[in-house]
Nucleic acid binder design. Structure first.
Length: 407
RNA sequence: GUGGACGUAGUUCAGUUGGUAGAGCACCUGUUUGUGGCACAGGUUGUCGCGGGUUCGAGCCCCGUCGUCCACCCCA
C-alpha cells in the first residue's frame, strides 16, 4: 500500500466538504469586496522567493521544496502565495495600468517542515492581494473582510495588530534596537545572538522566556514611528474601534516574511494547539518595485485552510435528492431513464442491486435522500412507481410516465 | 533539525508475570416476502507497522527501521 508523503493529506467526504465550504464562503465575500480570481503557477524560480520572502527567513533558509528541473533551472514549489501573485502582477504588466487591482487566490503551498497539529508540508491558503491603494483605509477594509469571513464561518478569533514602520522610521529604529540588544547580548539565547546580525526585529517575538524578560525594556517601534506611520496606525485603531472589531496591539508581532512594512496583523485562535495563527497579513508597499515592477503600494493576507477546518461550523445538512431502487431484477433497468430525467434537476442515487424493501429504505436513509422511489413486482406490472417523502413521510403510487415528466 | 508519546479488525481501543487475538461502533443478513432512523438475534473482518534477536513459545522482552501524533523551532 502506498501512503501519502509525510505531511500531506487526502481530504474526503466530511473534510473535503469543510474545505469547499471554506473556499466558497471566502470567495463569495472577497468578490463582494471587488476581488477577482487569479491563478498562478505552483512552481516558480527559486530566486522569486529569495528576493521576496527574504533569505534570512526560515521559510527560504530551510523549508523550501527546491530542486533543479530537467532543464537545469533552480525551481521551488511555492511556500506562500503573495510572491507569485506579485510576480504575475508585474509579468502581465498590470503595474503599468493606472487602476487599482485586487486578486484572490487559493491553493496548495509547500514547506518542508516537521508536521504537527496545524502544520503540514502541503497546506492550503486562501489569500487576497490589493494593489495600488496606499490608504490605510484599505488595511482597515482588508481586516474587516477577514473578520467577516470568519464570522460567516462561525469561527471565533483574536486579532493582533502592529506597525512595522516604513523606510523612513524602520532603519532608525533598527539601529536603535541593535544598540540595545548588543548591550544585553550575554543574556540572550544563541538564536537571538545570531539574529542580532541577520534579523534583529525577529528577536522581539523570541519564545524564550529569559529573552522575553530582558526584552520588556527594549525600545518599541510603536513609540518610534515617523509622523505618517504613526498617524496611519492611530487611524487604523480608531477605524477598528468604530467598527467594533476588537484587537490587541502586539508590539512584538513581527511577520515571518521580510516584505511587510507598516500595518501587520495576525488572526489567532486559542482552540487549535500550538500553531495558533489562522490568518496573517499586512502591507508590503515596496515589494512590487523590489521585484522589478513599477512602485505600487499593496496590502494582502492569507488564511490557513487546514488551521480553521475543525473550527468551521458547518451548515446543517438537509435531505436532498432521490434514492431509486428495485425489488425485482426485471425492474432495475426501468430506473435508468427515470434517473436520467431527474438528474436534470436534482441529485439521484440508483441502487443497482435488487433487494428487499427494508434494505432499500435503509439505503435511502444512508444516501440522505429526500425521496425514495421503489419499483417492485406490482409497480412493474402496472407501470407505476412507489414514492415516499422521507421527511413528511407521505407516500403514494404514481404512473411511471407521470413521475418522469414532473418535478 | 531536536525532544517525547504511540503503531493490534474498516474505525475507536482492550489485551494480565511471555502460553496460538478481543470489545464497542460500522458493515451484511434476519426478526418483518412492502414501511427508514430504534430495538433484538446472528454473521464477516486481522501479515498485531516492517526486519532481525532472545525464548520450547513473542502482540507483549531487546535491537534496528519505517510511519503517525504532540511539542520545540517556525508559521497559515
Amino acid at each position: 500500500m502506498i501512503n501519502p508523503l509525510r505531511g500531506m493529506k487526502d481530504l474526503t467526504f466530511e473534510e473535503s466538504q469543510r474545505f469547499t465550504h471554506i473556499i466558497d464562503t471566502a470567495t463569495k465575500i472577497a468578490q463582494r469586496y471587488g476581488y477577482n480570481y487569479i491563478e498562478t503557477p505552483i512552481l516558480e524560480e527559486t530566486a522569486l522567493f529569495k528576493r521576496s520572502v527574504g533569505e534570512s527567513s526560515d521559510i527560504v533558509g530551510k523549508e523550501m521544496y527546491q530542486f533543479e528541473d530537467k532543464g537545469g533551472n533552480d525551481v521551488c514549489m511555492r511556500p506562500e502565495g503573495t510572491a507569485g501573485v506579485v510576480r504575475a502582477f508585474i509579468s502581465t504588466k498590470l503595474d503599468r495600468q493606472p487602476i487599482k487591482q485586487k486578486f484572490y487566490y487559493y491553493g496548495p503551498m509547500f514547506r518542508y517542515e516537521r508536521p504537527q497539529k496545524g502544520r503540514l508540508r502541503e497546506f492550503h491558503q486562501f489569500g487576497c492581494e490589493s494593489f495600488g491603494e496606499a490608504s490605510v483605509y484599505e488595511d482597515f477594509t482588508v481586516i474587516t473582510m477577514i473578520s467577516q469571513i470568519f464570522t460567516e464561518l462561525g469561527i471565533g478569533f483574536d486579532l493582533k495588530i502592529n506597525s512595522l514602520g516604513c523606510k523612513a522610521c524602520m532603519p532608525l529604529y533598527r539601529e536603535n534596537l541593535v544598540g540595545f540588544l548588543t548591550g544585553i547580548k550575554e543574556e540572550l539565547c544563541s538564536d537571538c545572538n545570531r539574529r542580532i546580525e541577520t534579523n534583529p526585529i525577529r528577536i522581539l517575538d523570541c519564545k524564550n522566556g529569559t529573552c522575553q524578560s530582558h526584552l520588556v525594556s527594549s525600545p518599541k517601534l510603536i513609540n518610534n514611528l515617523c509622523g505618517e506611520c504613526d498617524s496611519d496606525f492611530k487611524k487604523l485603531t480608531a477605524l477598528l474601534d468604530n467598527a467594533c472589531i476588537s484587537y490587541t496591539v502586539d508590539t512584538n508581532l513581527v511577520r515571518g516574511l521580510d516584505y511587510y512594512g507598516k500595518t501587520a496583523f495576525e488572526f489567532v485562535s486559542n482552540e487549535i494547539g500550538a500553531q495558533s495563527a489562522i490568518a496573517g497579513g499586512g502591507r508590503y508597499d515596496r515589494l512590487v518595485e523590489f521585484l522589478d515592477g513599477k512602485p505600487t503600494p499593496a496590502v494582502g493576507f492569507a488564511i490557513g485552510i487546514e488551521r480553521i477546518m475543525e473550527l468551521v461550523q458547518m451548515p446543517e445538512i438537509q435531505r436532498e435528492g432521490i434514492y431509486m431502487g428495485a425489488m425485482t431484477d426485471e425492474a432495475i433497468e426501468v430506473l435508468f431513464p427515470l434517473a436520467a430525467a431527474k438528474r436534470k434537476e436534482t441529485k439521484v442515487t440508483v441502487e443497482y442491486n435488487s433487494k428487499g424493501f427494508k434494505s432499500h429504505m435503509k439505503g435511502a436513509d444512508k444516501a440522505n435522500a429526500r425521496y425514495a422511489v421503489l419499483i417492485g413486482e406490482d409497480e412493474l406490472k402496472e407501470s407505476t412507481i412507489w414514492l415516499k417523502d422521507l421527511e413528511s413521510k407521505e407516500e403514494k403510487t404514481v404512473l411511471l410516465s407521470e413521475f418522469q415528466d414532473t418535478n
